[in-house]
């Protein structure tokens, strides 16, 4: 059974900027189908943690073990750059806060969604286009927008396009960095709902960084609370939010309720 082992095993992971720690001593396991929220204020180290886990930043201390598609377990720090990029192409996704960072703004929606397929060796135009169009539909972008560039899209549509571009190759692990902030509340709700249903349909494992506890509550199973680069509390999302133990979590939760 593929569920016997976690997808990601994070042990005592740190990333150092010079002699200062961006994040420090982080431990957790992530299982297929599980959504983990990382919450905290800006500067708490949550984006550094995301960067370290996704191998965009190096691992100064500790280990990150990832169970590959074929069942082998790899220590990410020991993988070659080409192996990491292969993971990026075929097993991982990354949804940026700013869609322009995750899309090619001058390339059509179809080209944006088709690119990962082409990167994975798809060489049949008709099939690439059909798959891309199906994905546009799945993320609620009308099929007839397939040849428009994201420059002509609204913020919410761009973000949905970015999600399609990430999910088209059926990744196993998706990193999301504040995917809904900067959007109108109604657009946010729609996007969260979409993410939630795609995550459960595709059995994705997701690590989502957010400063918004409501986002964590709506879509995550588990939550890590970060402060000053360290995890100050972790557990089931509803437990962390309804019965916060750490002083900082209590502050965070009470701030939200009053805000």
């Amino acid at each position: 059974m593929s569920d016997e082992r976690p997808l990601l095993e994070v042990r005592n992971v740190s990333h150092r900027y010079g002699d200062r720690f961006g994040c420090r001593g982080v431990d957790f396991d992530l299982w297929p189908g599980e959504v983990l929220a990382v919450v905290g204020e800006s500067g708490s180290g949550k984006s550094t943690l995301l960067g370290t886990l996704s191998q965009r930043l190096d691992t100064s201390e500790g280990s990150i073990r990832y169970r590959l598609h074929d069942g082998d377990v790899a220590n990410l720090a020991e993988l070659s750059e080409s192996a990491v990029r292969r993971l990026w192409r075929s097993e991982w996704g990354f949804v940026h806060q700013n869609a322009a960072d995750g899309l090619r703004m001058q390339v059509s929606a179809g080209g944006n969604v088709g690119e990962p397929l082409m990167a994975n060796g798809w060489r049949h135009y008709g099939r690439i286009r059909a798959e891309a169009t199906d994905w546009l539909e799945r993320v609620e972008i009308p099929r007839d927008r397939v040849d428009d560039t994201p420059a002509a899209f609204s913020g919410g549509m761009r973000q949905r396009l970015q999600i399609a571009r990430n999910l088209v190759v059926s990744p196993r692990l998706v990193f999301m960095d504040e995917p809904t902030s900067g959007l109108d509340v109604s657009v946010q709700a729609r996007l969260l709902d979409l993410i939630r249903s795609l995550v459960s349909d595709l059995e994705l494992a997701v690590i989502i960084v957010t400063h918004d506890l409501a986002v964590a509550r709506l879509i995550s199973h588990r939550t890590l609370v970060m402060k000053d680069g360290r995890v100050v509390e972790s557990g089931l999302t509803d437990r962390v939010l309804d019965d916060p133990q750490a002083p900082y979590t209590q502050l965070l939760v009470s701030s939200i309720l009053q805000g």
């Binding site: 059509s108 088709g114 690119e115 082409m118 990167a119 135009y125």
Partner: peptide, 22 residues
């Protein structure tokens, strides 16, 4: 240069895709 090194040429096909789409 990294794309050449790692043999990642999906992007070139994006250009051709865009041509056909257009």
């Amino acid at each position: 240069r990294r794309m050449h090194a790692l043999n990642e040429y999906g992007l070139m096909y994006v250009k051709l895709y865009e041509d056909i789409a257009k």
